[in-house]
Amino acid sequence: MIVLVISLALFLVGLYAIITKRNMIKVAIGFSLMEYAVNFLLAIVGFRPGALPPILKAVEVGKVYADPLPQALVLTSIVIGLGVTAFLLALALRLYNRIGSFDLEEIQRLKG
């Protein structure tokens, strides 16, 4: 249970960065942190105490294996996370070239 609480705390660190930081790179870092936290949480949900990796020829009686389904879905999610990070960084780079700063307040001032 303590493991779940600390994973959710990592998620909240990312959310904190997205809500309160005014720097675009910090916001991208917050997105990455939230991603890591959710991926780790799902891997924990698929884990059992003392489990073996789900790589086997035949199930041996008395041995516990990790659930392969969350692992497969997290595999997808990790790769999509890289796409999200790359897109956010491309947007940040473009905005920096336009306004000369990563500060989100500068962008609001440019409006209109």
């Binding site: 698929g46 884990f47 073996l52 595999l75 990790i78 790769v79």
Partner: peptide
């Protein structure tokens, strides 16, 4: 991920 019996995830995570 290695600790959580997910070696595939660990490999992908390192690359990413």
């Amino acid at each position: 991920f290695i600790r959580l019996a997910a070696p595939d995830l660990a490999i992908v995570q390192i690359v990413i």
